[in-house]
Amino acid sequence: MQAQAELRHAEHSEFVSFTVTGQAFCLQIKQIREIRRWSPVTVLPHAPHDVLGVMNLRGAVIPIYDLSARFGLETTEASERNVVIVVAVQDKPVGLLAESVSEIISINPDDIQETPAVDSRNTMEFIQGIISHDGGMVRIINLEAVISVPEQVF
C-alpha cells in the first residue's frame, strides 16, 4: 500500500529491470540493497520449492527465493550467469534469484498502468502495476506480497 502511494507521489522514479524466465520485471531502485552474482546456496531441508536455500551475506544468513518458481513459472536452473537481487523486506535482507539484470529505467509515475485483470490470482497479487517500455511490458513487483517473512517464534 505504502509503496504504491510512494510510487504515485514520486516525480520520476528509477527502476531496475530484470528478466525472470523471459519476462521483464522491475523493482524500485531504492528497494534494492545490492545485486550479486549467483553462487551455490545451502539447501534448506523440507523447504518449499521456491525457496532455494540460504546464503552467507557478510555474516548474515539470508534466504534465497526463486522468483520464477514464486511466480508460478518454471523452476530456474541457477548458474553463474544468474543474479541474486538482495532486497530488504521488513528490514530483513532477502535474496531473489533472477535470470539477469537488464537496465535502469526512469519512469514517470503517471505512466504506470494498473494491472489488467487476468485470470491468475498470483499475478494480480504479486504485480503492482505495469509500464510500457521500449515497446515491451515491464511488470512492477509488489515485494511485500511476494515475500512474507516468517513470524518469529516468541
Binding site: 534448506l44 531441508p45 534466504p63 516468517p150
Partner: peptide, 25 residues
Amino acid sequence: SLDGVCGNIDGVSAATILGDGKIAM
C-alpha cells in the same frame, strides 16, 4: 539463528558459517 529467515525446520536447529564462507545447517 534461522528465526526470521525461514520457519521451524524439522531436524535443523540453526545454521552456522563455515571456513569457506558457506552456510551449514
